[in-house]
């Protein structure tokens, strides 16, 4: 009878505890379609989202793994549905510590409501972790090793409802089985990156006025995507940040600097042409140029400079003419005086 009581309690608890989870929560999960890999291979673990009929527009993802068992080499964003990143994928290996972490955070303008009917792909990848096994000394004697990769509690998704509402979420990690093989390692990531010959998408540079960001400085904003290997980094170059006014024939040192958006301009006078370079994982580059609008002050300064130059030139011309005429008149006077003196002498 006591056993029957326990079964009854279990049924009640089951009804209360299980059924709420059968409602339609957004799922973020690590794709475990292929979970057995050669220890020395480099393979992907895609982080996917299933919106379950909801529309979401922002996610933050935390992946935790054991750095003694696997190594996250990189994070591929080429196939990601996220187009704006508040936190580009960050790998924290935390060597010597218990857990390594991968963090990223981004969003989709207009939201993401799941797979479009007829889409040949699943189109639900948030990012792909590029993973390889870590060879341990005792591994040679083992035939396989199991490693857990989990999604951390910081993982969140937000509904596309205009109120910033956190979506009910279920998370699912992955269990990897790593086997030892003497065959040569297969690096899927490297071969995919090598196949990427297309530069990142064309993009625009936007000037952000200082006061609008609560600052008195000028910034630029930029963003693009690379649909193959993903954007690796951005670089910015300001052609002549130190020039002033009419002194444009003396270019100063200009160089590319690795940057992120928003970028605070070195040339706060906005005299320089600005170049932004987006570089993908294979080194393909897309460079766009932006010429800031001339400020009224600069226009005025340059106008005055031109006027001053013209004025100086006109003054010199008048001076030369005046001196020439004056010399000529003096010569004429002297000549006339000499003739008169000659006439008086005769």
């Amino acid at each position: 009878m006591q056993r029957l009581c326990y079964i009854s309690l279990f049924l009640v608890a089951g009804c209360i505890g299980v059924f709420p989870y059968t409602t339609y929560a957004v799922q973020i999960f690590l794709d475990t379609t292929e979970n057995t890999h050669n220890l020395s291979d480099t393979f992907y673990i895609p982080v996917r989202i299933d919106t379950q009929g909801e529309c979401i527009n922002a996610v933050t993802v935390e992946v935790a793994y054991n750095p003694d068992e696997i190594s996250i080499q990189d994070v591929s964003t080429g196939e990601s549905v996220l187009t704006l990143w508040t936190q580009f994928p960050l790998i924290q290996k935390n060597e010597g510590k218990e857990l390594g972490q991968v963090l990223f955070e981004g969003g989709i303008p207009g939201g993401y409501c799941g797979r479009v009917i007829g889409d040949p792909g699943q189109t639900n990848i948030l990012a792909k972790l590029v993973v390889t096994g870590v060879r341990q000394q005792e591994f040679a004697t083992d035939t396989s090793k199991v490693s857990q990769v989990v999604l951390g509690p910081a993982t969140k998704a937000y509904l596309h409802d205009g109120s910033g509402t956190e979506a009910p979420l279920t998370l699912a990690g992955s269990t990897l089985v790593l086997t030892y093989s003497s065959s040569s390692p297969n690096n899927l990531w490297l071969s995919d990156v090598k196949q990427d010959v297309i530069a990142p998408e064309l993009f625009e540079i936007t000037l952000v006025e200082g006061p609008s960001v609560g600052s008195n400085k000028h910034y630029i904003a930029f963003n693009t995507t690379d649909k193959q290997s993903g954007v690796d980094h951005y670089e910015v170059l300001e052609t002549d940040p130190d020039r002033f006014g009419f002194l444009t024939w003396t270019p100063r040192e200009s160089y590319w600097v690795i940057a992120s958006s928003p970028y605070e301009l070195r040339d706060q006078n906005l005299h320089s042409k600005i170049l932004v370079k987006a570089v993908d994982k294979n080194g393909n580059e897309r460079i766009v140029t932006y010429t800031p609008p001339m400020s009224p002050f600069v226009v005025l300064t340059q106008s005055y400079t031109a006027l001053l130059l013209v004025g100086v030139l006109v003054f010199i011309v008048f001076l030369v003419l005046y001196k020439t005429i004056r010399r000529k008149r003096r010569n004429d006077v002297l000549k006339n005086s000499a003739i008169i003196e000659d006439d008086h002498g005769q």
Binding site: I108, G110, P120
Partner: peptide
Amino acid sequence: PGITTLGFWAADRAGRRSITYAATFQ
């Protein structure tokens, strides 16, 4: 080629704007 998100918003004849409707696909 690749994953693309297309968004659409409309302004009606009175200049009122709609929400942005988006579709993500390959």
